[in-house]
Design a binder for these strands. Structure first.
Lengths: 160, 160
DNA sequence: CTGTGACTTGAAGCGCGGTTCAAGTCAAGG
DNA sequence: CCTTGACTTGAACCGCGCTTCAAGTCACAG
């Protein structure tokens, strides 16, 4: 049982996270190592599930600080639970927005309008009611290629 | 017709964006002013729709640079269109992940496990197959309160 | 003509989520 | 024993998406 522990490198590889990210998460209280082998962190195997949850939460729009709070939450923490319920509702909106965006993109990828954003069908997707703008303070990002040459499709101003 | 133009302050108010953000978007090529009144930018009313689209795209995980490219895209830009289709597929995954997270949160907000993250039902939500980790390079964020005292629910390490 | 005050600019700064770096430590192999 | 090399640390740095700041310009009121 003493030997079921995972080295940080192994955790990094299996989780897809950089070792530096693991140390960063530890500093922020998201994870903890089960002990050390010399200087080296040793993790219990179930750290991987925790990391999977963290990754899911991160990509769902939670900050590191939020996740840290969620991870130590107990049933009597009513405020946090209220916040969870609120977050669940926010996620509904996010889902609606993403669905719109997906539909819009899907159309744009096959539409013949010049330029694409001027297509009436496309615009209609974004014209309607709520679910367009996120509740204040709420966003996301996706790093674009950096690899692969998608970085220069439209010859954007390129200023700065 | 010459008087249907909007002042930057008006656009800011109606769009919910800060004037600085509008200037920033202009610098990045996302928007353009229709002209100037003295020094002041004057915008055509339909800028608001464009901004709504931009906000939706931003909150769907697109970077400023991506949006800039999308906004100038034409039907013959096959690479970009391929990327759009790919993005649409990624959004499917995002939606699946958000849906999971929503369900997990919804359960956690009414569950009696101590601590909440150890609830088997909750864990099961995140245990299964794909749709857990985002395709590499892909994330989002949500600023937490800052207002309202949610900032200290679990007395997290507080280091740093 | 003289404020006033909302805009203009470029440059610097900020918060987040890490990565990178220099310098140090340790276990294992030869 | 000494080397090797993967880990350790704290601190510095980075990219993104803005915001803030100092200094300047302009339209309009009085």
């Amino acid at each position: 049982m003493v030997e079921s522990l995972l080295d940080i490198a192994e955790v990094a590889e299996r989780s897809g996270l950089a070792p530096s990210a693991l140390r960063f998460y530890e500093k922020r209280g998201l994870i903890a190592s089960a002990g050390r082998n010399g200087l080296r962190r040793a993790y219990q195997p179930d750290i991987l599930k925790r990391l999977a949850f963290i990754a899911c939460a991160r990509s769902s729009g939670f900050t590191i600080a939020e996740i840290a709070r969620f991870l130590v939450a107990t049933p009597d923490d009513t405020k946090l639970r209220a916040r969870m319920a609120e977050k669940a509702r926010e996620l509904e909106e996010d889902i609606a927005r993403l669905t719109r965006m997906r539909d819009g993109l899907h159309h744009a990828s096959t539409c013949m309008h010049e330029p694409l954003v001027e297509c009436p069908d496309f615009k209609r997707t974004f014209e309607n009611p709520a679910t367009l703008t996120p509740s204040p303070g709420h966003w996301q990002r996706t790093a674009f290629p950096a690899e692969g040459d998608l970085s220069r499709p439209g010859e954007v101003p390129a200023n700065l």
